[in-house]
Design a protein around this nucleic acid. Structure first.
Lengths: 225, 225
DNA sequence: GTGAAGCTTAAGAAAGGCTTAAGATGCTCA
DNA sequence: TGAGCATCTTAAGCCTTTCTTAAGCTTCAC
């Protein structure tokens, strides 16, 4: 998820950028209003974090400029405590949410995700094929709406397959996805996991064996595609 | 910002009224519950400060009366120390925050502003999942309306989890939330806190272990969601 | 029918997590 | 200031789940 962070303070900016990166965001950080406007013209971000404390009231200018140009990305503003008047004004100007300093990075992350999710109309990290669903973010796997519990290796295996259903995945590719780089597998461990996963999916047809090559995920009862 | 202060003690009432005026609030001060109810009918206030120590239990009557009539203004209650039972009860009755005497006028001002801001931004400080509620502002945690007392680490842990219930939180993420940046944890402290928190929540199913990954908060008795 | 490839099962090994308790630390209140 | 208390981090032992391995069995293609 690409985020634009507009924060003039170097310490805080770096901390937030790093913290959000750790939490799975891809953060671009600029320090002036001009740089923010330029960045917004040249890249597509999924959300913006905007410090209102920029010099020369640049923060609110960036906000107004965005909305005037019809940019609809979610904007979360950062502001000092005890400034409710300004917050209300910026919400009126088109900000979507706010957070007062000092804030918790986890809360910032959660709010960002909520904003982006709302914007995208509930598109999520869910991969699905027929009645089978796998959410990479929550790690929930469901079959016909019923959750099934998978071990780590089983989850990684299914995830690799469902990322490109219908496609044949070679054994090497799958082993690379399922096992850590430094674990040496000299046995049929992959086959064992396939076997266990099939058992949990109930129907062996979900995972089709392509002899000599690898495996493919497909809906039971359907041919090769 | 127009505030209604309900406080029978003349000394304290005057001090608070003056202090808040200095801090940019416009304070109307009344000394009885009847006067408060009358004032609320005739003016629009952005928040109310309510002393629970009024004669005849009038404080809580005013609170209940307000909410019955559908008034949604933020209400901050003042109460004596060591009265957590009453605090919880009044939070249940619809109070938004509390402060114990003696208190600091600056803190009172900050909390008022936070309450008003939140009211206008339509965000809530209460995070909940099923019968479990956590208020980030008051730090009150309730399970089935009953308050439970959590240590700092336990609170941070639960807060991190409940910010995104149903989602799997990795150990690294949780450690980042629970521990200060500069404390190096080289033990299983996180697991210990999980264990203690589970004990306080009564039902181990609230926190599900995802082996090799981390933890997830979910309602007991429900599957992975 | 034969050999190669894949499947299944079970067992031992390894990893990961839980609980408990002890010592350390810090806070509160007299 | 110091006793008492709550909380925190460590560490150790135990338990559970998951993983890998290996062996024997089945399926497939020729």
């Amino acid at each position: 998820m690409h985020i634009l962070l507009v924060e003039d303070d170097a310490m805080l900016g770096q901390a937030v950028a790093l913290g959000l990166n750790d939490r799975g965001f891809n953060v671009a950080w600029v320090q002036t209003g001009a740089a923010a406007i330029s960045a917004l013209q040249h890249h597509a971000y999924q959300a913006m974090i905007l410090d209102l404390g920029l010099p020369d009231l640049e923060g609110s200018r960036v906000l107004i400029n965005c909305r005037k140009r019809g940019l609809r990305l979610p904007i979360l503003i950062l502001t000092a405590r005890d400034n409710s008047h300004e917050i209300v004004q910026q919400l009126d100007n088109g900000a979507d949410d706010y957070l007062t300093k000092p804030f918790d990075l986890n809360e910032l992350g959660a709010r960002l995700r909520a904003l982006i999710r709302r914007q995208q109309g509930h598109t999520s990290a869910t991969l699905s094929l027929g009645e089978l669903q796998l959410n990479t973010e929550t790690r929930v796997v469901q079959l016909q709406q019923q959750p099934i519990s998978l071990s780590r290796r089983e989850f990684e295996l299914l995830k690799a397959l469902i990322l490109q259903p219908g496609r044949v995945h070679s054994r090497d590719q799958l082993e690379a996805s399922v096992f850590d780089q430094d674990t040496d597998i000299e046995s049929n461990a992959l086959e064992v996991h396939v076997s266990n996963l099939r058992k949990k999916l109930g129907n062996k047809e979900w995972i089709e064996t392509i002899r000599g090559i690898g495996y493919r995920l497909k809906q039971p009862g359907q041919g090769a595609q």
